[in-house]
Amino acid sequence: MNKPNFAIEAHALSKHVDGQAILVRVDLQLECGQCIALMGDNGAGKTTLLKCLAAIKKPSSGTVCWFGRPAATEVSERRLIALKPHEDCLYTHLTAYENLMFAARMIGLPNPANRSQDILWKLGLSRVSDTPVRQLSKGMRQRLGFGRAVIHDPPIWLLDEPFAGLDDSSRNQILQIIREKRRTGGAICFSTHQDLDIEELDAQVVQLHQGTTFLSQPNASSAFFNRKRAS
């Protein structure tokens, strides 16, 4: 009787723009502590799906629920999710620290300064906290953008290609943060082109092709991951 309470549940999600189908009746469920990887070619609809799940794009039909309630019926519910879109969403004329402070204040965190310092430290960006974002390297911006998105540490994380263009050490930092989040019961959905990301995060794969989810393989790589952990 008791329906499992999914962190995110999308039902029959379709999105059409100007007669073009971007998403076609996509169903997706994400539980707490679960990690889903969206894979697919460019233009398969990954970004649109993530934006629909984050309720910043209106689907043409279908519904999105966060914790069993229709998504973002009140603005305050936005605190439940983090979306790291493809862009970094940073003000290039503000410093790294100011960008995080702005995000923390908009969300209404109780202690924005501490939280911002904390995130900078975790991402290894403390050194450049007072540097304007336009002087930061691409990889640093990307990490900072990730930090901006998850600054309020919400239960649902939606990440659009979080590892694209990162060097190994930056990638590991972010992997570490995502694993930690998952261990504490976070629901994570990210898009990627790399099999390695899926293996290392032990994620379930959802394939998108021309707007349809056509293949869902449960824990394809868990054997590999378990072996690695054991050794």
Binding site: S14, H16, G19, A21, V24, R25, S60, T212
Partner: peptide, 12 residues
């Protein structure tokens, strides 16, 4: 008409 077209697309 547009909706019908979309229904057809949606059904694969």
């Amino acid at each position: 008409i547009l909706d019908l077209k979309m229904d057809v697309t949606d059904q694969g």
